[in-house]
Design a protein around this nucleic acid. Structure first.
Lengths: 122, 122, 122, 122
DNA sequence: GTGGTCTAGACCACG
DNA sequence: GTGGTCTAGACCACG
């Protein structure tokens, strides 16, 4: 799985890493139990500070997406809690995006098609 | 139309104002041509600085959602450009939210129902 | 000659009037000696304050484009001073516009063609 | 690259900074990828407030001329979008300047020579 | 150290 | 009265 930093983005780098790993887990690029690169290796690969990668991993651990231990480094969690439903923040974010898309001339069916594509087959 | 600031949010206050006005325009709480509160009135009402409201209005103006005018204050633009389509940023944000919702156990049909609700009837 | 106010513009209304009259004189829509509408009539026609039109006329008079007297109202000046050359402000403004056009991919010959068009036949 | 503020100008300070940086990029005084002074350094150098410089940088960022970054400060963007063409506002501004130049006795060929000079060699 | 946000207070031109 | 600009000073997250 390849992580790309968009240096033009306002999204902090550690968030970009966190987001791409979450998306990787969701779309299957990262399998349950799969080993993630070490903090050091990923920082080197991306040419960024170790602290930045570490912050991303800490957040992923807190959110229950990955688990870490000294022996094996970081791995994708086997059992991700599927009972949480959509978070309040994401609901608000979704509402904003839907509103803006609507005002930009995107029709309801176009938007739904896009969501279906992004969701994937399962 | 009532604007509420979430002081605990990471989203800057001026962005929260901007977002709520955009959502208000999209869902019809704010009609084309409708007068917005003056920067001073809104700042007083929300207990925040004039500059903060002003920054929100300036962004809305730049984005083409409102027009400002020394005589009339700020008003919702009559003709909002409907040809823009979904922005790259919003597409990326949507992808992230869909991924997270999916990992949180939201089914595809639940998500589509939510998007339909948020989009509204038209 | 028809004057149109762009209420979306940041250019003050009195400046918009002043600019359109200058452009009208330059392109021949307004002839030397031609009578301009009275301040009152133009304000009524445009639905704006009398003071605003008055300010435009005062500036035009100061700049030597029109002359006013109580009997005849305002007229385009017969002899406009053709020895002034381009003003410092306009030179700076032109430099900015040329720079931006260049960075926006407008070629030198496209820009010159545009200037020739705007200048007209004479 | 040296930035000079004209305190007598009607153009807001933040716009003057923005304009001079755009012109610097266009004429090659600022190269793609080049580091700009930090907001603090430029504010100190010009004897103005940090917020004023910050506003200029934010506008340049929004317009796609520069990118900002907590690590590296602000830099000239490597790839500036060359597909935009001349903006409506600049077209209007150019028309006004051409009209005024014409009325001030500047001939068509003089004006074109000036535009060619301002555009530069490429 | 960097840009980003926010405040309190002030002054300005436009209309 | 309105939005727009500017200041001095402060705090913050990112890295």
């Amino acid at each position: 799985m390849i992580i790309r930093i968009d240096e033009l983005s306002d999204v902090p780098i550690y968030q970009q890493i966190r987001n791409q790993i979450v998306m990787g887990i969701s779309d299957g690029s990262l399998s349950p139990g799969e080993q993630l690169p070490t903090v050091r290796a990923l920082a080197l690969e991306l040419g960024i500070n170790i602290m930045t990668v570490s912050k991303a991993y800490q957040q992923l651990k807190l959110e229950g997406y990955i688990m870490t231990n000294r022996k094996n480094g970081a791995r994708v969690r086997i059992e991700i809690d599927k009972q949480k439903g959509i978070s309040g923040q994401n609901r608000t974010g979704l509402k904003r995006i839907v509103s803006e898309a609507r005002l930009s001339g995107v029709t309801k069916s176009e938007l739904i098609t896009l969501v279906e594509e992004l969701y994937g087959d399962k």
